[in-house]
Each structure stands twice: as C-alpha cells, then as structure tokens.
C-alpha cells in the first residue's frame, strides 16, 4: 500500500496539472539516485528492482517536465527555499550517523535523511503563497501517506521479523511529522471539497 501510494505521488504526468516545486523535485531525484545505487550490488526481488527503476525514471521525468516543458508556467519567484541549507547538514549528518562507514552506505543514509526533509521547499512555497491547487494537495497527501504507512510496516516487522532500522525509523517519523499540518488541512478542507488556502 505504501509503495502504491508512493507510486501515485511520483507519477510525472501529475505535474501536467499540479504546481510542483522544482527544488523539491530535484531533491527527490537526488534521493532516488543515491539510495538505489545498490541496484548494481545486490538483488532483492524483481518487484524491488522494478520499483527502484520506476522511481528513478519518474523523478527524472518530473524534473525534465518541470524544467523543459513547463518552464513558462514555472514560477521561480516562489521557489526560493535554499536547498544547500538542507543538503549540507544532511550530508554532514550522514557521515556522522550511519550503520557502516562505506561509500554506498553513506549515500543510502544521505538519501534517507534527505528524503525526510525534501518536501520542505514545496511546503515552504505553499506557506508563502497561502494556497495550493487541489491536485497538488492530492500529490502531497499520497507522498506523505506513503511514509506513514511504512511506519505501520516497521512496527509489524519489528514484532514479527525482529527487523528494526533505527535510521530509517527516525527519519520516517520526522518525515511524517513534517506533513502533520498539511494532513490536518487536507482532511478538514480538501476532503470537504474546499480549496486549500491558509488564513492570512
């Protein structure tokens, strides 16, 4: 369910109508690229490999569409969040706190940490403009829901498989918490047929 929710939110064709922030989409492309380098080193399942390839392809297609096709409608004035303020601390943290000090593992850790905050430029734009297109809110809802569903999955795996990945869990909790405000607005406004707009 989490993967399907994630899949729905990475669909590049959504951006035909959603107003997505280029900076967030560049961060997601970086997230998938650094996380799925293990495509070259380990095979888990056909499902796992295909999903990784789809996520990578979708993230680059989205960046391409925003950058090339919708350059005219892309409003850089609202996309002012400084991504280096995310990438630099996250990069430093992944060197300091990781499971194993190896190149692939540090990149995986970087990816996990970066994903937890990659949506901030998008949320920042919404807080600045004070509103969001309904299609954009659906995109955000599924992107947030996906990690929340993983939290449930991790509780399950902890009890039934003894699996526990502290880095993924902490980052997943942070990621989900960042969406809480948005989830509240989505349920109280968008699901009741109103447009998402913030009080001035």
């Amino acid at each position: 369910l989490a993967d399907m929710s994630h899949m729905k939110s990475v669909n590049p064709f959504l951006i035909v109508s959603a107003i997505l922030v280029l900076h967030s989409q560049l961060l997601f492309a970086l997230v998938f690229t650094t996380r799925y380098l293990d495509l070259f080193t380990s095979f888990i399942s056909l499902y796992n490999t295909s999903m990784k390839l789809i996520y990578i392809a979708c993230s680059y297609a989205t960046v391409y569409l925003i950058y090339m096709k919708f350059k005219a409608t892309y409003d850089g004035n609202h996309d002012t969040f400084r991504v280096e303020f995310l990438i630099v601390p996250v990069g430093g943290l992944s060197f300091l706190v990781n499971h194993d000090f190896s190149p692939l593992e540090i990149l995986w850790t970087f990816s996990i940490y970066l994903e937890s905050v990659a949506i901030l430029p998008q949320l920042f734009m919404i807080s600045k403009t004070g509103e969001a297109e309904t299609i954009t809110t659906h995109y955000l809802f599924f992107l947030g829901l996906y990690r929340a569903l993983y939290l449930v999955n991790w509780i399950w795996r902890y009890y039934f498989e003894g699996f526990f990945d502290l880095i993924a869990v902490v980052a997943g909790v942070v990621q989900t918490v960042l969406y809480c405000d948005f989830f509240y607005l989505y349920v109280t406004k968008v699901l009741k047929g109103k447009k998402l707009s913030l009080p001035a």
């Binding site: 293990d38 499971h99 593992e105 995986w108 990945d165």
Partner: peptide, 10 residues
C-alpha cells in the same frame, strides 16, 4: 568500492 548493507525496502 565497499558495498553497503542489504536494504530490502524502497
């Protein structure tokens, strides 16, 4: 080029 751990999740 050392491998990372085996991560079975997406």
């Amino acid at each position: 080029f050392r491998k990372g751990l085996k991560h079975d999740e997406l």
